[in-house]
Amino acid sequence: MVDFFTNVFFVQLVNGLFIAAGIYLVASGLSLVFGVLGILNFAHGSFYMYGAFFVFTYVGFTAGDFWPALFIAPMVVVILGVVMEVVFLRPIYKADPLYQLLLTYAMVLIFGDLVKILYGAENLSVARPEGFEGTVTIAGSLFPSYQIFVLLPAGFLTVLGLYLFLNRTNVGRTVRAATQDREMIGALGVNVRLLYTGVFAIGAFLGGLGGAVLAPMGALYPGMDFDVIIEVFLVVVLGGLGSMAGTALGALIYGELKSFGILWVPELESVFIYVLMAVVLVARPQGLLGKKVEGGH
């Protein structure tokens, strides 16, 4: 009995990690962009969607060559992101934050219909790359090899990469400084415009990467952007807007809560997370690991 229990426990724990890694890939970009630009980007879900759809295009084009798509698709998304930032967001940085929020919402609507025009309204699917269709056995339990060898490492490498980038490089330190004090960074002679565009591009890349990595695990359809964005908001807000560590923590809590929620109270699994978020926000509006904010007293 004990053995059985630990087995179930272990499996659900790892499953929680899968969920967390998937959502973290998408959410990290949103969090980073908010930290530096102060914009809660609704269109981040669209980046995720486009990342997945571009993978589909690339794989279809090269007849099954999956791996390069993991880089190429997000790069194409970066182009979209940069265009959006330069053309639409840049002119209204000084306006009310609400306007920026609404602008990104407008972009969601526009991106959403464009994908339908480009790809038509059909369920699409990207096949798993060769050699990763099956399962692997870990500690006596079966796990899908794609999740173990691609999804988890991708999530982990993103955490690590972002950590190294933000803490070990000069550019990263500037970015981090910008999350602390946006006004100051301009006074220090940093090219703020370039910094913003750069950060937004990284955010778009991460969103696209999330879509690309998750593409072989699900179906692609117009409307998947709306499905993901609320969950991503949840994770980011839970962990603390703009805090990268917080996002990772938020993703972890989200994944595990969901995984064990299904095991114990399947009916209420989706309500739990919202209640948790509300409780956290009421007690700590800046999120679990967010920095202290104005208005958050």
């Binding site: 899968f18 969920i19 699900g218 409307g223 499905d227 993901v228 969901k258 995984s259 299904i262």
Partner: peptide, 10 residues
């Protein structure tokens, strides 16, 4: 619109 069924599957 669920994306991740790992927990359900196991």
């Amino acid at each position: 619109g669920e994306r991740d069924y790992s927990a359900h599957i196991t």
